[in-house]
Design a protein around this nucleic acid. Structure first.
Length: 359
DNA sequence: GCGATTTGACCGGT
DNA sequence: ACCGGTCAAATCGC
């Protein structure tokens, strides 16, 4: 058992290092022939940093006794100093936990990290999967909001009761552009699905439902390369490094087989959700939903902008990005990935550490 | 039967 | 009092 786990995180570590190397090579290319590169040096640098941070996080998380920067005593990356919710992902007795949580949760909810992203849905396209952020959400309410045309949906983490995960999100369709969904996340996932390094390697992956790209399949690898070529990441607005974004894009842009493996892991964790969220949306906005036929093929981050580097100690992150989802023909393999930012980067580090401090 | 969704009621902040 | 957010009973769907 231990050996299996060891191999798992070690391979992840290696993947991250390989990814870092790949990104460094691209940076080199970018510096030598800027016109041929679609990525800016700054962006690549941030991606490289993020890759190494994830590698370190993997070591920290699984290395255990060696404590290379223990989560409880992390190498700080802009750690928030605001008080953190006094709960964690560790399962406890549920009933006593509930009152405790409800009181404290409501009190601390306001201070929870909050960030917003906007997802653009092309008209007429299938939405399923587009708004899938890799987490399992359970809808617990819907409200008409004053001055808003569309109701706001309230979701909480499916594992709230079992694992005490208090992450929530709100989904609001934009008034101005009904093709845009504004998703406000609140709270950091503390459940097992919260971080890919925290997801226990569960032996054979349950990928039977989806046709995931296979690293061994040159066609699919080529497909991903093509997808990567189609990516347009606008970094003009980025005057401040954004590990979150870089982690996002570094995964998107990765082209090595190891990265494909990485993505497969993500698909596994998010696959359950795709139909789930689509149903939520269709129930709320049936007129906009096209029949759920085609598979999401990929997403392109075409207008990512960092509103402001948040002061983590006070207000929490406020990050906006617009993601266009592009669909493909029905038979296309599902190689889309919408990576939850907080699984991979900025938030993952900061808030995860913050949570760990509580133990 | 069980888990997810719906929806009116309720609560707390402003 | 109003409004956003959450609760929880009823309902749905697999």
């Amino acid at each position: 058992m231990d050996k299996v786990n060891m191999g798992e995180w070690e391979s992840r570590l290696i993947n991250e290092l390989i990814q870092g190397r790949e990104l460094a090579r691209r940076l080199q290319m970018c510096l030598h022939a800027p016109s041929s590169s679609q990525e800016t040096p700054d962006f690549l640098i941030q991606s490289i940093i993020a890759a190494f941070e994830r590698a370190l996080a993997t070591v920290n998380f699984h290395g255990g006794s060696s404590s290379v920067g223990e989560p409880s005593n992390p190498t700080r990356v802009g750690l928030p100093t605001s008080e953190s919710p006094p709960f964690s992902g560790s399962p406890r007795s549920e009933d006593s936990d509930r009152d405790f949580q409800d009181q404290n949760a409501s009190r601390n909810r306001r201070s929870m990290p909050r960030w917003t992203k906007q997802i653009r849905v092309s008209p007429g396209m299938a939405v399923e999967g587009t708004l899938d952020d890799g987490y399992s959400w359970r809808k617990y309410g819907q409200k008409d909001i004053l001055g808003a045309k569309f109701p706001r949906g309230y979701y909480r983490c499916t594992h709230r009761n079992v694992q005490g995960c208090l992450a929530t999100k709100q989904v609001q369709r934009s008034d101005e552009d009904p093709n845009i969904f504004e998703i406000t996340y609140r709270g950091k996932h503390t459940c097992a699905q919260s971080s890919y390094i925290a997801v226990p390697p569960s032996g054979p992956q349950e990928t039977h439902e989806l046709n995931h790209p296979n690293a061994a399949d040159p066609h699919q690898e080529q497909l991903l390369v093509n997808l990567r070529a189609g990516l347009r990441v606008q970094t003009d607005n980025l005057d401040i490094p954004d590990p979150q974004q870089s982690s996002f894009t570094s995964l998107i842009l990765g082209s090595t087989s190891s990265i494909l493996n990485h993505q497969n892991q993500m698909f596994t964790s998010s696959s359950m959700l795709e139909s789930n969220f689509a149903e939520n949306l269709t129930s709320s906005y049936p007129s906009y939903m096209s029949p759920a036929t085609s598979a999401i093929t990929y997403f392109s981050a075409n207008n990512m902008s960092l509103a402001e580097m948040p002061n983590m100690a006070t207000s929490g992150p406020e990050i906006n990005d617009t993601i266009s989802a592009v669909t493909s023909a029905a038979n296309s393999p599902t190689v889309g990935f919408d990576l939850p930012f907080d699984q991979f980067g900025y938030d993952g580090h900061n808030f995860t550490f913050d949570n760990h401090r509580l133990f």
